[in-house]
């Protein structure tokens, strides 16, 4: 009889210990997961949302027409220059070499 009680107590102790170990393990896994979740980029992005976007909508109405025309012409020249330059460097992208890097542009972009 006493042996059965002792055996029961041992069993209860073992079962209790295993349950406790499982609960502790689960809790520590959850804590680790929560820590990992906090370090995920989504949280960084949310924190970065406060940073204002770089883009600003241009206020065309405030400028005199001649300056707007000048700006538009300059913008067109810059875009044309970038297109020409990209066409020239496309060979460098495929076959990098000093020669393909410094191919001469037909038109240079000059500010004066």
């Amino acid at each position: 009889m006493e042996a059965a009680i002792v055996f029961g107590l041992v069993l209860a102790f073992l079962f209790g210990g295993m349950t406790l170990a499982l609960v502790m393990g689960y809790l520590s896994t959850e804590e680790a997961r929560a820590r990992k979740q906090a370090q995920r980029p989504g949280h960084m992005v949310r924190a970065a949302e406060a940073i204002p976007s770089f883009f600003v909508k241009p206020d065309q109405g405030a400028l005199p027409p001649e300056i707007r025309e000048f700006d538009e012409a300059l913008l067109a020249r810059i875009e044309s220059h970038i297109r020409e330059e990209q066409a020239l460097v496309s060979e460098f992208v495929e076959y990098p070499s000093v020669h393909s890097l410094y191919r001469q542009a037909p038109h240079e972009l000059r500010a004066h």
């Binding site: 770089f54 241009p58 300056i67 700006d71 913008l75 810059i78 970038i82």
Partner: peptide
């Protein structure tokens, strides 16, 4: 890419 001309920001096509 944005480029500033006379205080206003304009978009320049790069690709």
């Amino acid at each position: 890419l944005p480029i500033t001309l006379h205080g206003t920001v304009k978009d320049v096509r790069v690709e």
